[in-house]
């Protein structure tokens, strides 16, 4: 069920997930489009998530933006100034480098795998700042078998930091390691299922990455029965029209529905890029998610040595990193 409407306020709105935003020209969402988007969200009972560019919007936008309860996703250091300071504590700052300080309660840190390795100590320092840290690896497709042990090792090092914080009575939140220890079922991106994106052109997309692809003319046809729709899944005039919507749901993803790497993003954009089917994850995504899952299991076991913690959570020991290898046992 849809719960969130992501509104890209400009073509250059900050990328906050796996996909980089290749669009460099400012193209502000027209005010009328923004108003219609907000109205759509209100009627569908959706929480609005605005994604900001790194420049200040015209003053006329502030009032419209604040006409509804919202979450703001913005480039770090570019906190949007609107007429209303709502003190929303779930706003999200996005950084492409490890910041020294974080103002929002949520940080999305977008790094390549090698950048992550180089800055692992600086990343560990973020855990003590109190903000939730969402580390997003932006070159998942490059992840190679030789990097498996390296990834295990760096997660293990972060586990040590996190464990010490738990011992001090703190509750650090780091998506790769602490989400899974609190989850009893899949909690993924769910693009097209619980959230949908409105682009500056007034059209809906499964997520911002599908809009970027369309603008860059990459793989730009989602609905083959309606070729002119390119990658969009509806617009503000006609509403949503998601082709094959069942394939976005967990029960139509044969590998994922039997999986317990509950923290995995299950990025459908990566799925389409790497396996060409929205419901099928690549080996890279599965292996990385399982390394995280197993590291989370180790963290949970270590935390339980010093305190009772989430007794209802059970992360079983498994002997594979890619559920594809054991698919016949499902």
């Amino acid at each position: 069920m849809l719960q969130y409407l992501v509104i890209l306020l400009d073509d250059t709105s900050v990328a906050y997930c796996h996909a980089d935003n290749p669009l460099k020209e400012h193209n502000l969402t027209p005010l009328e489009t923004l108003k219609k988007g907000i109205l759509f969200g209100m009627k569908q009972n959706l929480m609005i998530q605005y994604v900001f560019p790194n420049y200040e919007l015209p003053t006329a936008y502030a009032e419209v933006i604040e006409s509804i309860d919202n979450v703001k996703i913005y480039p770090i250091g570019c906190k949007p100034v609107t007429s209303i300071e709502d003190g929303n504590d779930i706003d999200v700052e996005v950084a492409n480098d490890v910041p020294e300080k974080v103002e929002a309660k949520n940080l999305v840190l977008r790094l390549t795998f090698s950048e992550m390795l180089k800055q692992k100590n600086e990343i560990a320092k973020l855990f003590v700042l109190g903000a939730r840290v969402n580390l997003c690896i932006i070159d998942v497709e490059q992840f190679a078998e030789e990097q498996i042990e390296t990834y295990k090792q760096v997660l293990n090092e972060w586990n040590t930091t996190l464990l010490n914080l738990y011992k001090q009575g703190k509750s650090p939140q780091f998506n790769l390691l602490t989400d899974r220890i609190m989850l009893e079922k899949m909690h993924n991106c769910e693009a097209g299922v619980n959230n949908i994106t409105l682009a500056p052109n007034g059209k809906f997309y499964l997520c911002p990455a599908f809009y970027y692809d369309e603008q860059m003319k990459v793989f730009n046809q989602l609905n083959h029965h309606n070729p002119s729709s390119d990658n969009s899944v509806g617009d503000l005039e006609k509403g949503l029209d998601i082709p094959n919507p069942q394939l976005l749901h967990l029960d139509h993803a044969p590998l994922c529905r039997n999986c317990d790497a509950y923290q995995c993003r299950r990025c459908i954009w990566l799925n389409r890029r790497l396996t060409w089917d929205l419901n099928t994850p690549s080996r890279q995504q599965c292996v990385m998610a399982h390394i995280e899952r197993n590291a989370s299991r180790a963290l949970l076991n270590d935390i339980r040595k010093v305190s009772k913690f989430m007794p209802e959570i059970d992360i079983k020991e498994i002997n594979y990193l890619d559920p594809f290898e054991v698919r016949k046992e499902f």
Partner: peptide, 9 residues
């Protein structure tokens, strides 16, 4: 014949 780029329809 599928609506989308899929073998699951």
């Amino acid at each position: 014949a599928a609506k989308t780029h899929t073998v699951f329809q």
